[in-house]
Simulated assay, not measured.
Amino acid sequence: MPPDKHRPPSDDGDVYVSPRYLATATGIGDPALTPLLELGWDLEHDDLANAYVHAPDHTIRLGFLPEGADDGLWRINAYKDSFAPPTWGVCFNDTCPTEFVTAFTTALAKAYEQGPDAYLADPDTISEHRQPFLAVVPLLQRGWQLDHPRRGVAAIHSPDGLAWLEFTTGDLDAKAELTTRDARWHLWAGTSADRPFWYVTASTDTPVALIGAITECVSDPVPLPRWREDTYSYVAGMAQLTPILPPRPPVPTPLDIQRAATRRSATALPTSVPRWSTTSRPAQPGSSR
């Protein structure tokens, strides 16, 4: 059977999770670090196994923090001045699928190669790549629905209502945006924003193209491979889990083996078949044998 072009090849999982925003984290950070390391960015570790990656000019820093102070596993900040507060910051929590982080770091690596205007544009500059609507386009194209706006917040959600993107209007506290979930952009999945399955936050002035890379990946209809036993029980009841490989045939029991042997012996040919000898002569008429 030819492979399904809508399913990714998998070397790490026994089920496909659909929709992909109900998948769990993989627990492996290497895929998300690779796009930046391939540019020659520096990698360091601390005594707690946290990893830190920064651009050669120190305008961007990434922290992979499994032993961090909170559930912010991935923190990416950009700086115009190495000694000043970040110009913008993005956070992925510890249950966010790694594929979404990888989509962001891949777009970030591309923007870095294009130059500072692609990732450190002046907040006062009105340009196409800073229009918030551009980050919502992938969601609208895939059937996400605009929610009834509430005061100060515009929102859009997936068709099943289990994934949301919220954009806060008005003024926000710059420090709180970098340290809490009270940020300009808030993307999450679950049945409640207070207790999401996972979340992503992005502060004011985060380039919209980078946020669009996340929304493009989150809304992609292609499922994600995962191990069934690692899928959270409260998610498994909402997601569709499709086996990647056909189930293995059951191991035969001793009774199955005995029955098979009995069937073979019942249908086997006799060990010898009587037949006329080629040297025998036919009986003469009237003679007795």
Score class of each variant (00 low, 15 high):
residue 2 P to R: 02
residue 112 Y to V: 12
residue 249 P to T: 04
residue 63 G to S: 12
residue 36 L to W: 03
residue 257 I to R: 12
residue 236 A to T: 06
residue 187 L to F: 13
residue 50 N to C: 06
residue 269 L to D: 10
residue 230 D to Y: 06
residue 2 P to I: 01
residue 271 T to S: 15
residue 20 R to S: 15
residue 25 A to W: 05
residue 69 A to F: 08
residue 58 H to M: 09
residue 120 L to S: 10
residue 101 V to E: 13
residue 211 I to M: 14
residue 179 T to G: 01
residue 78 A to S: 15
residue 250 P to L: 08
residue 229 E to T: 05
residue 206 T to P: 01
residue 49 A to Q: 06
residue 248 R to V: 04
residue 191 T to Y: 02
residue 100 F to M: 14
residue 262 T to Y: 09
residue 30 D to Q: 12
residue 252 P to D: 02
residue 150 R to S: 12
residue 223 P to K: 09
residue 213 A to E: 02
residue 110 K to S: 14
residue 110 K to C: 02
residue 99 E to D: 15
residue 255 L to H: 08
residue 79 Y to I: 12
residue 112 Y to W: 12
residue 96 C to Y: 10
residue 98 T to N: 15
residue 229 E to D: 10
residue 145 Q to P: 00
residue 195 R to F: 10
residue 234 Y to P: 00
residue 95 T to M: 04
residue 240 Q to M: 10
residue 159 P to A: 11
residue 19 P to M: 03
residue 194 D to M: 09
residue 234 Y to W: 11
residue 238 M to E: 11
residue 76 I to Q: 05
residue 205 D to G: 00
residue 276 W to A: 09
residue 261 A to T: 12
residue 222 V to H: 07
residue 200 V to S: 01
residue 18 S to Y: 11
residue 135 A to W: 03
residue 204 T to P: 01
residue 136 V to C: 07
residue 3 P to N: 01
residue 251 V to F: 03
residue 63 G to R: 08
residue 233 S to R: 13
residue 136 V to K: 08
